[in-house]
């Protein structure tokens, strides 16, 4: 008997549902049993009965929501698996942020992979994406338009450091999402040889400490409070994007507002947000990575969860891959 993939996973209002195991992947509302791919708020919500995720993701959820974020937690390291009613779940690295995973679901010879959010390029703060052969690949599509082709990270960090050298009397405040992007920007700066203290906004401190506890070395960090304005000339600070252009930023001398995000590829976006130095650093796969991953895995079917589904579906059509858009709602709220 041929198993229809929809029997193993299909969209429901709460998210992708697996009927034989009575479990959801990244549900957007509280459910009895959830497999969580990574710690971003739109994928990892509090209030589930049982949560299956990597130890890193569980630690991130505990840091964000408090220890009692779920009835019960089930840590699942990469390479381990757990079975329920004939369905086997395992997690494979997704390369998105610390602990981020693809959910691999196997049942009666059928393998389906839910990518979660992922990227293919190197990231010093997390394990790289591992391709898992499968019949159905369920992919994100945040940057699924041919205009999104992220440049190399090293060039973006070099532009930041060049600007710091060019405007030594000003400070540079880099807006970066607090989970993943902030730590990656810091790690990339360290790789580029920036060994001075990096000032960080208070909202980042907990996650920075968590990254360090998992072995990601971020170098000397300090809060931005307390330092004299003049001492902050030539400094680099990292803050959540929402802290740019707020009273918090007034402590810096004539700050250059930078923003590390894949959305910064589009000039109008940078302009609208008043960003003076856009840094195109994304934790999501760009167009080339998305299409190359589908070509590499060569699944029988591609399902597209969230983002710009129509363009990726069109590419699949042009390349002879069966594709469908799942029209899941509730993802992509944390931005990039």
């Amino acid at each position: 008997m041929v198993i229809r993939p929809e029997s193993l996973l299909h969209p429901r209002p709460a998210g992708l549902y697996c009927p034989p195991a009575d479990a959801y992947v990244d549900p957007t509302r509280p459910v009895a049993r959830a497999v969580i791919t990574h710690g971003h708020a739109d994928h990892a919500r509090a209030g589930h009965g049982v949560v299956i995720a990597t130890p890193e993701t569980l630690a991130i959820m505990a840091a964000r929501y408090g220890e009692g974020f779920a009835g019960q937690v089930h840590p699942l390291a990469f390479g381990q698996s757990v079975s329920r009613d004939g369905v086997t779940f395992s997690l494979a690295p997704a390369g998105h942020v610390l602990g981020s995973a693809q959910a691999v679901v196997r049942w009666k010879g059928l393998t389906m992979v839910v990518s979660g959010d992922y990227k293919r390029r190197r990231d010093p703060t997390c394990r790289p994406f591992e391709p898992v052969p499968c019949q159905v690949f369920i992919t994100e599509a945040t940057f699924a338009l041919p205009v999104f082709r992220h440049p190399p990270d090293s060039g973006e960090i070099a532009r930041l450091l060049q600007s710091v050298a060019q405007f030594p009397e000003r400070s540079h405040v880099v807006g970066a999402y607090s989970l993943g992007k902030a730590q990656r920007v810091i790690a990339l700066l360290r790789e580029a040889g920036w060994d001075r203290t990096i000032h960080v906004h208070g909202a980042l401190e907990k996650l920075n400490a968590l990254y360090e506890a998992f072995g990601v070395d971020l170098g000397p960090l300090a809060p931005a409070t307390g330092a004299a304005k003049a001492q902050l000339a030539g400094a680099i600070a990292i803050a959540p994007p929402s802290a740019l252009a707020t009273p918090w930023a007034r402590r810096f001398p004539d700050p250059v507002d930078a923003f590390a995000s894949g959305w910064m590829r589009i000039r109008a976006r940078a302009r609208q947000q008043g960003v003076e130095l856009p840094l195109i650093l994304s934790d999501h796969a760009d167009w080339d990575e998305l299409t190359a991953t589908i070509a590499e895995l060569s699944p029988a079917q591609v399902w597209i969860t969230h983002g710009r589904e129509e363009a990726l579906a069109r590419w699949c059509e042009l390349n002879g891959v069966a594709a469908r858009a799942l029209a899941l709602v509730g993802y992509g709220e944390e931005g990039d």
């Binding site: 205009v147 082709r149 589009i266 710009r308 129509e310 363009a311 069109r314 590419w315 042009l318």
Partner: peptide, 23 residues
């Protein structure tokens, strides 16, 4: 490149030179 993909891209970016530069 595919006309539909270009059209979506141009629609999204809104500036011809920038769209062509990116795609």
């Amino acid at each position: 490149m595919d006309g539909a993909l270009f059209a979506w891209s141009y629609d999204y970016v809104g500036d011809l030179a920038e769209t062509v530069a990116l795609v």
